[in-house]
Design a protein around this nucleic acid. Structure first.
Lengths: 197, 197
DNA sequence: CATTTTATACTGACTGGTCAAATTATTCTA
DNA sequence: TAGAATAATTTGACCAGTCAGTATAAAATG
């Protein structure tokens, strides 16, 4: 039955995610995935063409999930400023919850140089992120709270600031400073969008 | 002779760098390094304790080199605005020259989760970067061209913007848009430092 | 000729992927 | 509906290949 098969695939992806989070992209073996999924080794090859296929689907899952959560976070907010705050809050949601996600995502970033498929998936992710940025900026311009000339460029800048802050956050080890990175990022993005120069 | 030995070690590090740039961190073998250095496999193990030792020294070399070039680029400039521009110019110096460097650096970023030694080296690198930022900001404040409350925070923000832009640049494939990422980053950082909000 | 340096063969561990056999689920038939 | 027949799924042993690290022999050096 197709439903059962889809469930198995999800189970394997979840296992792969946990394995990568724990051991890092390049040291995860098919056996690891099988162990985390509590199935035998052959199963992975039964539901996926090969290892890269598993990891491609995993990247798709991760980026889609990140985007959906970000998109959902701004949905209910009214003003551009509220949306922006909700957006940043969602990115830095909590050490336990998000650190793992972005840390696995970072593993993929370095693989993109050599895996065209990963790059494509990431490109889609970027475009999704940029569209969130555009939405917030455009609304802010209408409300008169932001002042930017080039919406496209500003959207890219927002993502740059988020990515850059995320990396320093991931490297910082110190979970206590988690909140400071968030407000930090928020203030910087506000400066980017509100500067009148 | 100590001099000869040091030369050999440099030769091996250079080979390792080329190998990682070409094949990616996790698929480089000791044999690859030997091949790029045009020596036999035994040499690498003679001059370095093991593979991680080679790669640790390589990361140290890369981050030191990036920092030195950045520090040198602002040395000769007079004003804070000139220094800032020179700094950003140095980061986005040219696709051929720097893309490889940062692309290898990105490979390391994802390894830091599991290699304490790498994290330490990177921490030193960050502190060097922050110190460059601080220097530029402090001078800009004195000259009255920048307006920020917290110098430390602003320095971190600059690096966030640079790192974030670098990543999107590395992923963009399109070398033609290289210049636009540079001016892009420059304008954003200016906005961060000059905003009067 | 003694020491340092380089080359090479080897080992033991591990990997991704294959596959035939075992197991389980589903369908068919009498 | 019992039970055989068929299909789908799961298992784990296996293979061919790769790797880091070691041991040792050979060569260079001074």
């Amino acid at each position: 039955m197709a439903k059962k098969a889809e469930q198995r695939r999800q189970q394997i992806l979840k296992a792969a995610f946990e394995a990568v989070a724990a051991k890092g992209y390049d040291s995860v073996t098919l056996q690891d995935i099988a162990d985390y999924a509590e199935v035998s080794k052959g199963v992975t090859n039964y539901y996926f063409k090969n290892k890269v296929d598993v990891f491609s689907h995993l990247l798709e899952w991760i980026t889609t999930r990140i985007y959906e959560k970000e998109a959902a976070s701004i949905e209910l907010k009214e003003t551009a400023l509220e949306k922006l705050e909700a957006y940043i809050n969602q990115v830095f949601v909590s050490p336990e919850e998000n650190k793992t996600f972005y840390s696995v995502y970072l593993d993929y970033l370095s693989q993109m140089k050599h895996q065209e498929r990963y790059r494509q998936i990431n490109q889609q992710f970027y475009e999704n992120c940029w569209s969130i940025g555009r939405e917030i900026i455009t609304q802010g311009l209408e409300e008169g709270v932001f002042h930017v000339e080039d919406v496209e460029q500003a959207a890219i800048s927002i993502r740059s600031m988020i990515d850059g802050t995320l990396i320093q956050w991931l490297m910082s080890q110190d979970d206590g400073r988690h909140a400071s990175y968030k407000s930090h990022c928020h203030q910087s993005v506000l400066r980017l969008l509100q500067a009148s120069s």
